[in-house]
């Protein structure tokens, strides 16, 4: 392998190691499932590798990568590829037996939220995750989703409204977070 290519690969490897945790968390919220999240991030990073020269030179490489991941996520829905949107019974996210302990309560919250997210249409889910997890501005979210700011506002508002309307989550929100 040539020296230049080797240096580029090294740079790319550092990027992967550094961004993996954050991208995986975002992907987890988008897909609702560990393996689907890993698959989404890995395939996104493979695409990043193909365009690495261009991306490494870009001012906002993270924004670029985020957009690629959102595109990949949207594409999977369009093509109706297999994706596990809701936590499965054996995932441990939604305990079958209720418990009053804090840890279980937290698991309830997570389970309720992931289940609620899974019920949102993909664009609303993307808007909610980018706005409230990635903490992006409406403009940044619009860039990541490749749509207008108006569409972001609309999708995020509808998403939040639907989340609030889901009894389990509404209760969680009403009583505040339990840390």
């Amino acid at each position: 392998m040539g020296e230049r290519k080797k240096a580029r690969d090294m740079e790319f490897q550092s990027f992967v190691v550094g961004r993996w945790p954050r991208l995986l968390r975002t992907a987890f919220l988008l897909t609702g499932e560990q393996h689907a999240a890993e698959d989404l991030v890995q395939s996104t990073l493979e695409q990043v590798y193909v365009a690495w020269r261009k991306i490494a030179a870009a001012d906002e490489s993270d924004a670029y990568v985020r957009r690629m991941m959102i595109n990949a996520h949207a594409r999977r829905h369009r093509r109706r590829l297999k994706e596990f949107l809701a936590p499965r019974d054996d995932s441990g996210l939604v305990p079958e037996v209720a418990d009053t302990g804090d840890r279980i309560s937290q698991a309830d919250d997570r389970g309720a939220l992931l289940a609620a997210l899974a019920q949102l249409p993909p664009r609303q889910r993307e808007a909610v995750v980018l706005r409230y997890w990635e903490d992006l501005t409406e403009t940044q979210t619009a860039e990541a989703m490749g749509c207008s700011v108006g569409a972001v506002k609309s999708n995020a508002a509808k998403g939040i409204a639907k989340l609030r309307a889901i009894p389990g989550l509404a209760e969680t929100v009403t009583h505040g977070r339990r840390l």
Partner: peptide, 11 residues
């Protein structure tokens, strides 16, 4: 809640 749920994923 999102932050908490995101922590659920095994990194």
């Amino acid at each position: 809640l999102l932050a908490d749920a995101a922590d659920e994923v095994e990194i």
